[in-house]
Design a protein around this nucleic acid. Structure first.
Lengths: 225, 225
DNA sequence: CAATACGGATAGTATTACTATCACAGATAA
DNA sequence: TTATCTGTGATAGTAATACTATCCGTATTG
């Protein structure tokens, strides 16, 4: 059984809904391929158009500019993560197990059967590791925030925050700890792959130690052994 | 007494040493002003040249491109931080106090008397919060790493890592924890200023709670009460 | 049948990110 | 003293980027 997944996206993230047409879906698919392969700076709408077989103007009918497309992809990713957390923890009683599942999902070691057809989640995860922070590290973050572009991130953070509080209802900084483990789960992978002397992991391929580090960090903060 | 501070920079960070000439120092000074004011994306060599009263070609004699200039500024910042940690902890015996000083320095709440004449450390700190990660979050991070552009970051991380081990010599991930608190000290400030619902702080202006969060995190990991 | 949506094709502009060349003034070295 | 080197200014030019605009055909729908 293949369950298709459709995530509702904020209207301001696009001009025309890319999931609603063939060309739109091609844009998403090829954008993910290209950004993952050569990075966001090298990525241009002209190259994307050429890859798809359409024109630059064709892409601009869907997205205002490439930064908005990146914001779209990150928003999609946050929503997808929150959905994963929701379905994979809903039948779990033990709060500690829930938190471990959250970390596994953040590290992409656990995916439910539901898949998106035109967005490759593994490749998108790789994009988020390197480019995700660029979606909000801008001079226009406040305007973007006003039109709710980062709502999926906040919702994800709130979900994880609640699971943190289930583990220790007296913990003072549940949201800060949530944003810390979200960002740090990406950063530690990036460092392990590219600047390993900023970490202590013995293997570049295996993420077990990163997971162990993150679990230790979270459970230490929450005083759970 | 004014103590001037001169930081030795990797030769690959520039074409001509900007600290060695009047124009070079103007480039650094105005680059910091401009990037802090309007962000790195808006910053161009043409605008910088106009602000200084020189030409675009004049800037290119000092830096290959604007990304390399950003890398220069971040490298300078890491070196400066490590120096601050060195002098401000050298007479401290208690490892826990040392670690608290490290956190204060990362949060720019503690500066020694030595100052740089043409680089404003407070403004540079603001730049690092928003733009610092962009220095390494690139497709060419490995090549940049090969020519040692990130050595100051690694040295800083190693210094903090050693102080962590002084607190708990059995802790398994001292460098990972060091890179975590470095990056997170910036991120939590950014979130507090721009996306506060990702945090739990009550004041946008006061960093006390961020410091308290970071201290709790570190000392929990190290099992120190 | 008319209206509208979708997308292909072409053109054009301002800005960005450089590269190259020439000229000149002041310091230094032979 | 003359030659040279260094630092900077001035000007020009190019390829690519990041858009914007217009036109036009085709498919869908009401």
């Amino acid at each position: 059984m293949q369950i298709e997944l459709k995530i509702a996206m904020n209207q301001h993230l696009f001009i025309k809904d890319p999931e609603g047409s063939e060309l739109g879906r091609k844009i998403l698919f090829h954008a993910v391929e290209m950004i993952q392969l050569n990075g966001f700076e090298d990525f241009t709408f002209k190259k994307l158009a050429k890859n798809i077989g359409t024109t630059e103007a064709g892409i601009y009918r869907y997205f205002e500019n490439k930064h908005r497309l990146l914001t779209y992809l990150t928003a999609w990713y946050w929503s997808w993560l929150e959905y994963q957390i929701h379905i994979q923890t809903k039948n779990i009683k033990d709060p500690k197990s829930k938190l471990k599942i959250v970390i596994m999902i953040l590290m992409m070691k656990s995916t439910s059967e539901a898949q998106s057809l035109h967005i490759n989640e593994q490749k998108l995860h790789q994009i988020i590791i390197t480019e995700g922070a660029k979606a909000y590290l801008t001079h226009h973050v406040s305007e973007d925030n006003k039109i709710k572009l980062f709502k999926p991130y906040k919702d994800l953070c709130a979900s994880i925050s609640n699971i943190i509080l289930e583990n220790n209802k007296n913990y003072t900084y549940p949201k800060s700890l949530a944003s810390t483990i979200i960002e740090n789960s990406h950063l530690q992978v990036f460092f392990n792959q590219n600047l390993p002397s900023l970490t202590d992991y013995s293997s570049k391929k295996n993420d077990k130690e990163i997971i162990s580090f993150l679990e230790h960090l979270v459970f230490s903060c929450l005083k759970i052994s």
